[in-house]
Simulated assay, not measured.
Amino acid sequence: MDFEDVSFQYPGGSRPVLRGLTLTIRPGERLAVVGGSGAGKTTLVKLLAGLYEPTAGRITADAADLRSLDAAAWRRGMTALFQDFVHYPLTARDNITLAAPEAVGTGDGKILELVRAGGAQTVLDRLESGLDTELWRTGGDGRDLSGGQWQKLAAIRALYAVEHGRRLVVLDEPTAHLDVKAEARFHEQVIGSVGDASVVLISHRLSTVRPADRIVLLQDGRITEEGSHDDLMKLGGEYARLFRLQASRFHGPGSIDREGVEEGR
């Protein structure tokens, strides 16, 4: 799909959030979008999902303008995992299968296969009734999860959606509740399990996006740098500066290894 000279300005806003943005999302590509706060990353995702319409320009899928497509049908072809994802007060099974409610009769064997592939087996092993565990706490009933555990379950929900035909996966700050090492495992297990679906990954941690096929840097509503991690490091521009700055925080004096912090909560 293509963003063709897309601009977007919120009603009442003093200036556009995106300005003349042109971007192609290729089939099966792992595309990372990075940039500072207010650069337009989340706005881009909402335009991609058809939640907003461009102020100028157009977004196309197979040459068709998204505005001409049925919005509900378009969204059924994609799945998204956001930082503030939904915690459904239902069973663990329901928290996974609601990603594709039309897929009735999926056996537990396939669900458990996805749980293992996505690295969430330890979460399921801690639930007294496995997939039938009610995930809410009211009085003495139900079970709550830590932030990291909920996030792993939400990741399996995204894999379930891909299993049932979603060809575009949007991950908007998906590892916000995970420590650095758990984050690396997330990307190895989850992103490595989406097959040939396209992935759009948004993250403020640049170490997260390093393995992406292509990285685009948004600044002031425009793409200012584009390429692989190695390409951008050789370029020596803003991406390289930010990457080195973040790396120094993890490897400098007084840095803290937070592995397992969330998992133990």
Rank of each mutant, 00 (worst) to 15 (best):
T122C: 08
Y160Q: 04
L168P: 01
L114H: 02
R75M: 03
A103T: 08
L66W: 11
G77W: 06
E102F: 13
H164E: 09
R126G: 14
V180L: 14
T106A: 11
L81N: 06
R58E: 08
A103S: 11
G77P: 07
D172Q: 06
L81M: 14
A120N: 03
A182E: 14
A155S: 13
G118C: 15
P54Q: 09
A103F: 01
E53S: 15
R126T: 11
T91G: 05
E173C: 02
L171N: 08
D132M: 10
E113D: 14
A64V: 15
R58P: 00
D125R: 05
A99H: 01
D144C: 03
L153Q: 04
E113R: 08
A117V: 08
T133W: 02
L159D: 11
L127K: 07
M78W: 00
D84G: 13
Y88M: 13
G142N: 07
D84W: 12
E183G: 15
F85G: 14
E113Y: 04
G140D: 15
A99W: 01
I111A: 05
P101T: 02
T79K: 02
E134A: 12
E173L: 00
R126S: 15
G119C: 10
A155N: 07
G118N: 07
L124A: 03
G57M: 11
H87Q: 15
R157T: 06
D144L: 10
A103H: 01
V86I: 11
Y52P: 02
L51R: 10
K110V: 11
R157L: 07
R126E: 14
W136G: 12
K181Q: 11
H87Y: 12
V86K: 09
G147H: 10
A80G: 10
G118V: 07
A73L: 14
G165L: 04
H164K: 13
A99G: 14
G130R: 02
Q149G: 02
A155T: 06
L51K: 04
D179V: 11
I96M: 03
T91P: 00
L131D: 08
T91W: 05
T60N: 00
E113L: 02
L171A: 10
L127D: 04
A161I: 05
L69N: 03
I156N: 00
I111M: 02
Q121T: 12
A73G: 10
D172R: 03
H164A: 04
Q151E: 01
P54C: 03
R67G: 12
L66N: 10
L90E: 15
A120D: 01
H87I: 08
L51E: 13
T55W: 02
T175L: 03
F186Y: 15
A100F: 07
R167F: 06
I59W: 00
A117T: 08
A99N: 01
G147K: 12
A64W: 04
A182Y: 09
W150C: 04
D179W: 01
F186E: 01
G107Q: 06
G107L: 01
D141Q: 13
P174C: 05
W74Q: 13
K110F: 07
S146Y: 05
H87P: 09
G165Y: 09
A176W: 09
F82S: 13
R143V: 15
F186N: 08
G139D: 11
